[in-house]
């Protein structure tokens, strides 16, 4: 029978030379690069606005960029590409003829997806810091090199953002099991993001029940939004964990009972 660690490790072998792996590597790199480009083109204005320490403005710009659509679509695309490896290669039937339980296969998928998203944030941190220092080297008046970034804030934001990601991971793993066609989960994410914008526009408090808004709520609280903080986490992050458990359970049910990999 399959042992837990070796079978989990196979999930990391499967993404070798695939676009899913490139997406993880590029995912953490693109936003700091894009924000750095914006800073470079408007550096005089930003130097004035940022004052003595530019890191907090750089962090705000980067995190807002990350949380508004970018992270959601990164996770959605990654989930689709990751599950598509099995669909495209017609390998579900091979997996199901190996001495490994369906439950374990599903657990491996959920854990791997979560680890991939953790990797995305872990790669973001060094890229972001490096990009800040690079900006300081290219434009010394920005004073990046004379200050250090707030590592505690960086780590806190990563943690909150990761917890907000859990709901999207859960929902899109379930969708990837339900639908072989990648377009459907992506369309759901597009629709979800449109609804999120509408909820923001309408200053609707119900936004805290809407998973596609959680990244933004974790990073930048809108003016109309008030929520409780339960223990170490705000209300919506508890909901994110709840959605993750709910959709992972649904996915487990579908995967272990009905899933054959050919629908």
């Amino acid at each position: 029978m399959a042992k837990f660690w070796p079978s989990l490790l196979t999930e990391f072998i499967k993404i070798r030379h695939s676009f899913a792996r490139w997406l993880i590597l590029l995912g953490g790199f693109i936003m700091p690069t894009f924000v750095a480009f914006v800073v470079l083109t408007k550096w005089e204005h930003i130097a004035r606005e940022a004052g003595n320490n530019p890191w907090s403005l750089f962090a705000e710009m980067s995190w807002k960029g990350m949380s508004f659509f970018y992270s959601v679509f990164f996770i959605v695309l990654l989930t689709c590409l990751y599950f598509n490896i099995e669909y495209k290669n017609n390998t579900w039937k091979h997996i199901f003829t190996l001495p490994i339980g369906k439950g374990q296969v599903y657990l491996n998928k959920v854990l791997s997806m979560t680890v991939f998203v953790v990797c995305y944030y872990m790669l973001f941190i060094p890229f972001w810091v490096a990009m800040g220092y690079l900006l300081g080297a290219v434009k010394p008046p920005l004073h990046f090199t004379s200050h250090a970034p707030d590592y505690a804030l960086l780590f806190r934001n990563c943690c909150h953002s990761l917890i907000s990601s859990l709901s999207i991971i859960g929902i899109h793993i379930w969708l990837s099991i339900r639908f072989k066609n990648m377009i459907i989960p992506i369309a759901v994410a597009v629709f979800g993001s449109i609804v999120m914008v509408a909820l923001f526009q309408g200053a609707a408090m119900e936004i805290k029940y809407f998973p596609y808004a959680y990244h933004y709520l974790s990073i930048a609280t809108p003016y109309f939004f008030h929520e409780y903080t339960w223990g170490p986490l705000p209300e919506h992050e508890w909901y994110s964990i709840g959605f993750f458990i709910l959709f992972c359970s649904l996915g487990y049910w579908d995967f272990t009972r009905n899933f054959a990999g050919d629908h």
Binding site: T10, H17, T91
Partner: peptide, 25 residues
């Protein structure tokens, strides 16, 4: 071996064997 072989085309032949090898212990 059911119908056409189920292989991870993005991987090498050895990697494909390695995956089955690891799952089967």
């Amino acid at each position: 071996l059911v119908e056409q072989p189920s292989l991870y085309e993005n991987l090498t032949g050895r990697d494909n064997l390695n995956i089955t090898c690891m799952i089967r212990g």
